[in-house]
Lab assay of single mutants.
Amino acid sequence: TEIRININGVTIHVRDASEELKKLIEHLLRLGADEKEIREVLHRWEK
C-alpha cells in the first residue's frame, strides 16, 4: 500500500506501507506528531 501524509504543507510519501504502519501513523497524527517525529518513526520502522 502506498500512502502520502501531508503535515503542514510537507508531504511524506511512503511506499509499501503495511496496514499496521498506516494505523500507527494515523494514531501518531491524532496525537499531534509533527513531520520530524513521523519521519523518525518511519526511519526506525524500515530497519
Rank of each mutant, 00 (worst) to 15 (best):
Ile12Ala: 02
Leu28Ala: 13
Ile3Tyr: 01
Arg30Ile: 14
His27Arg: 07
Leu31Thr: 14
Trp45Ile: 10
Arg4His: 14
Gly9Ala: 04
Leu42Thr: 02
Ala17Asp: 05
Glu19Val: 09
Val14Tyr: 04
Asn8Trp: 00
Leu42Val: 14
Leu42Pro: 00
Thr1Leu: 14
Asp34Met: 07
Leu28Tyr: 07
Val10Phe: 01
Glu35Trp: 14
Arg30Gln: 15
Ile38Ala: 00
His43Met: 08
Glu19Asp: 15
Thr11Ser: 14
Arg4Met: 11
Leu31Trp: 07
Trp45Gln: 06
Thr1Phe: 09
Gly32Val: 02
Asn6Glu: 11
Glu20Gln: 10
Arg39Leu: 13
Glu37Phe: 13
Lys22Asp: 03
Ile12Val: 06
Glu37Met: 14
Glu20Thr: 10
His43Gly: 08
Lys23Gly: 14
Ala17Thr: 11
Glu20Cys: 06
Val14Trp: 06
Leu24Glu: 13
Ile25Cys: 01
His43Phe: 03
Leu24Ala: 12
Glu40Pro: 00
Asn6Leu: 09
Asp34Glu: 11
Ile38Pro: 00
Lys22Arg: 13
Asn8Gln: 10
Asp34Tyr: 03
Asn8Ser: 09
Trp45His: 11
His27Cys: 13
Glu26Asn: 08
Asp34Gln: 08
Arg4Glu: 13
Ala17Pro: 12
Asp16Pro: 07
Ala17His: 05
Glu2Asn: 13
Ile3Cys: 03
Leu28Met: 15
Arg15Thr: 14
Leu21Ser: 01
Glu20His: 04
Lys22Ile: 15
Lys47Asn: 14
Ala17Lys: 02
Arg4Ala: 14
Val41Thr: 12
Ile7Tyr: 00
Glu35Gln: 09
Glu19Arg: 05
Arg39Val: 06
Leu28Phe: 07
Glu35Ala: 11
Leu28Trp: 03
Ile12Arg: 01
Glu2Leu: 03
Ile38His: 00
Leu42Phe: 01
Asn6Lys: 11
Lys47Arg: 13
Thr11Phe: 02
Ser18Tyr: 04
Ile38Arg: 00
Leu21Thr: 03
Arg15Ala: 13
Glu37Pro: 00
Asn8Glu: 08
Ile7Cys: 05
Ile5Thr: 03
Glu20Pro: 06
Glu19Lys: 08
Gly32Lys: 05
Asn8Arg: 06
His27Gln: 11
Lys47Val: 14
Glu40Gly: 04
Ala17Gln: 05
Leu24Val: 15
Arg39Ser: 04
Lys36Gly: 08
Trp45Ala: 07
Asn8Gly: 14
Leu29His: 06
Ile12His: 04
Glu46Trp: 02
Val14Phe: 09
Arg15Gly: 10
Val10Glu: 09
Ile25His: 00
Leu21Met: 06
Leu29Gly: 03
Thr1Gly: 13
Asp16Lys: 11
Thr1Val: 14
Asn6Pro: 07
Thr1Pro: 10
Arg15Pro: 15
Leu31Cys: 06
Arg15Lys: 15
